[in-house]
Amino acid sequence: MKRILGGVIAVLIFIVLALAFVHIPFGNIDLAEYHYYNPVDNEHTQDSVPQHYLDEGKKETGSTNIVTAVVVDYRGFDTLGEVTVLFLASTGVGSIMYIFEKEKRRKVRRANAVVETASKLLFGFIILFGAYIFVHGHLTPGGGFPGGAVIASSFLLLYLAYPRFHAEHKNLNIAESLAGLTFVGVGILGLFLAGYFLYNFLPFGLPTYLFSAGVIPVIYVAVGVKVGSELTGIVDAMMGVRE
């Protein structure tokens, strides 16, 4: 019964959406031909939003990677919201898993010596790699989110190799709080210095250099630390369930 209902609804939605996508071209688009309207100054322009990012992005934000420029600078407020979502998820998971944590620990077989040593050796390198990804977010593909995920994966390795391993909740909380405060603090500083929340108030420097693009690297480091500690927190809460 439920299967038939599900099938019917699924087919209906498929048809409706597929018919809508007949009207949307794939690939054959000229990004420059969409002219936006600026509601604040009430003017119709000859400019197009994506084309503007591609043409002026490097000049306006100092970032070589335009996706990073959009994520952190043009639409930085979305990223703040997104970081909050992850923060909420880790808070929520922690709040739900709270009652299961106090029960006694589960017995786990020890991993063998090779795995233990190798993961101890690899741990530092993986952290370094994650840090590399988020520090260079404005120059190469990558950024705070994948970098943070890589850092969390290094902790995941330790969890799998050492059954007794346990990340200190206090330290994770402090790390994510400080990173979050940095992000909001940079935003509020921009508000005081220039009148715009999240304004890119640092000098841009020379593009393609590491110390360029103003506040983008600062924000991406904060995002990386925050994402890393939050995902580690989620992994810890999920692993921490004792039976």
């Binding site: 996706v67 990073t68 593909p141 990558g142 950024g143 989110f145 994948p146 995920a149 890589v150």
Partner: peptide, 12 residues
């Protein structure tokens, strides 16, 4: 042509 998203999707 979305390398940033590819990395993120693969890791997360």
């Amino acid at each position: 042509q979305a390398p940033d998203v590819a990395i993120t999707e693969a890791s997360i």
